[in-house]
Each structure stands twice: as structure tokens, then as C-alpha cells.
């Protein structure tokens, strides 16, 4: 009896030992197929002759060449640089400023924080819709300013192909700056109070304390915020669609909308795939070094 009991418990122990793997396996398989498999799939498509329908004939770098020959793609890239740069910098400035201001024992801090952050809960489509209405040249802010007596005020960015991309920045900053504020505020609250006290005892003024001690000590949060914002910028799609539709013409296209248009409206699967791979490469260039340093840093701290 002892023997049979022992084998039985061996068997259950064996299954128990593998249960962990069995449980994770479906998710892992899904990830292998839907993430890695699909990336390879898209990557291959970018080397194929695919146009309207996916075909598997090898075309070498043909699609990439066509992509980089397209004026529209260059516009999208340029827009991404403008949008990404302004979006990140403005969000950082506003987020950091608000966090420092909120860190001054403010009455109703909770309410203010809620107000600053609520746009983050909205869909970009909702944000796009409302800002489209606000920036509407005929009835929006422009007419409001006219009513207020400033009749020479002109604000036609939404329909001006040189300026349309900046309206996307405005709306995006409105949506995401509160989130940066939340990240910074959490970091400020985590700064060692004794260091601040020591600096104060040494006679440092408040701005000195902030610029000399607190802000340098939350430097990692700047990095995290930049990575998150850059990642958001590259993936930005919904906002452009809802706000400008990529227009006028294709003047406010971003790579994300470019890819969508090529793949689903222009029957240019190959070019779409090539642009998607370019986007992936951009995101990887930002994320991989960051994740690597984060995960390594985590290990170092125990």
C-alpha cells in the first residue's frame, strides 16, 4: 500500500509541477502566434508583391522603395516628428509644472487632480470630436473671440494644411498632460523627506531645493514619461482620424493613419505592411533599451 500511495503522490506531484506551465501555455502560444507570428507575417508581406490581395511572391525591397518614394509617407514622417516633439515637450512641461504646484499643500488637491486627469479616461475619438467642434473656424473659438470683441482673431488651423497637425498636438496635450502630472506627483511624493529637510537646514531656497535636489532625484520618471509619450505618439491614430481625418488632403497624416489608408482603402497591402514595419522599428528603438535598463535595474535593486 505504501508503494502505491507513493507512486500516486508522485504522479500528482508531477502534474502539479507542470500545471504552472500548462496554465501559461495557452497565453504564451497566443502571444507567439498573434504577436510574433503576425510580425513575421507582416514582415514577409512587406517583401512580397502584395497589392490588393496578399500574395507570397518575393519582391525584395520593392515595397520599401515605393514607400520612401511616396510624398505622403514623407509628410507622415515629418508630421510625426513635429507632433511627437511638441507633444512630448509640452506634456512634460505642463505635467511637471502642475505636479510641483499641486505639491504645495493645496486645498482640494484631490478635486484638482481629478480634473487634470479626467481626459485620460476618454476615448481619443471623443477628444477629437470635441476639439473639432471647439476649433471649428465658423462656430468655435474663433467666433467666440469675435463675439468677445476681438474681431480680427483668426484661427483656421483645422482647415489649414500647414497648421492642421498642430491642432492634433493641442488636443493630444489636453488629453495626456494630466497623466504626466500624475506620474510626477507620485514621484515627488516618493522623494526622501530627510534630504529636503537637510537642504533646508543648509539654507537652500525653495527653487534651489526643487531644481538642485528634487527634480534631479526624479530623473528616472522623466525617462519613463518620455518613453510612454513617445510610444503614444507613434501609435496615435484615433485622434487624427476624429479630428482632421488626416486632412486637409493628407497634410496631417501620421504613419499610423498612413498605414491604415494604404492597407484598407488604397489596396496597397505591401506598402502598408512596409510602413507598419517601419513603425515597429521606431517603437522598438525606443522601448527595447528602456525595458532592458528597467528590468536590469529592477534586478539590481533586489
Amino acid at each position: 500500500m505504501g508503494a502505491s500511495q507513493s507512486t500516486e503522490s508522485n504522479l500528482t506531484a508531477g502534474i502539479q509541477r507542470h500545471l504552472s506551465k500548462i496554465v501559461v501555455a495557452p497565453s504564451f502560444a497566443a502571444s507567439l502566434f498573434f504577436v510574433y507570428g503576425f510580425i513575421l507575417w507582416t514582415g514577409y508581406m512587406a517583401f512580397s508583391k502584395s497589392r490588393m490581395l496578399p500574395v507570397w511572391d518575393w519582391a525584395g525591397l520593392r515595397q520599401y522603395e515605393r514607400l520612401w518614394q511616396m510624398e505622403r509617407w514623407h509628410v507622415a514622417i515629418e508630421n510625426l516628428l513635429i507632433f511627437g516633439g511638441l507633444f512630448i515637450v509640452t506634456c512634460l512641461v505642463i505635467g511637471c509644472l502642475l505636479a510641483v504646484l499641486l505639491d504645495q499643500r493645496i486645498r482640494a488637491e484631490g478635486a484638482l487632480r481629478t480634473i487634470f486627469l479626467y481626459p485620460m479616461a476618454l476615448s481619443f475619438i471623443v477628444t477629437g470630436t470635441v476639439w473639432k467642434w471647439l476649433l471649428n473656424p465658423g462656430l468655435g473659438l474663433e467666433s467666440m473671440m469675435h463675439d468677445l470683441g476681438w474681431t480680427s482673431f483668426e484661427f483656421d488651423w483645422l482647415v489649414n494644411s500647414d497648421m492642421a497637425i498642430y491642432t492634433v498636438v493641442i488636443a493630444a496635450v489636453w488629453q495626456a498632460s494630466g497623466f504626466v502630472m500624475a506620474m510626477f506627483l507620485a514621484a515627488l511624493r516618493g522623494v526622501d523627506q530627510d534630504i529636503i529637510r537637510a537642504a533646508y537646514m543648509d539654507g537652500a531656497s525653495l527653487p534651489r531645493i526643487y531644481f538642485g535636489i528634487i527634480i534631479p532625484s526624479i530623473r528616472p520618471v522623466f525617462l519613463s514619461a518620455i518613453v510612454v509619450l513617445a510610444h503614444l505618439a507613434v501609435k496615435s491614430f484615433d485622434l487624427v482620424i476624429a479630428l482632421t481625418g488626416g486632412g486637409p488632403g493628407y497634410s496631417s497624416d501620421l504613419p499610423a493613419t498612413f498605414m491604415y489608408t494604404m492597407a484598407f482603402q488604397r489596396n496597397q497591402l505591401g506598402v502598408g505592411a512596409a510602413s507598419a514595419m517601419m513603425m515597429l522599428a521606431t517603437v522598438m528603438a525606443i522601448i527595447v533599451p528602456y525595458l532592458y535598463s528597467e528590468l536590469r535595474g529592477g534586478k539590481k535593486n533586489g
Binding site: G2, Q5, S6, S9, N10, T12, A13
Partner: peptide, 11 residues
Amino acid sequence: DRVINDVHPKD
């Protein structure tokens, strides 16, 4: 007298 190397903790 029982060898327990391969016995599950609960047993």
C-alpha cells in the same frame, strides 16, 4: 522508518 524523499509535503 519511512524514506520521505519523494513524498509530497502534505503526505
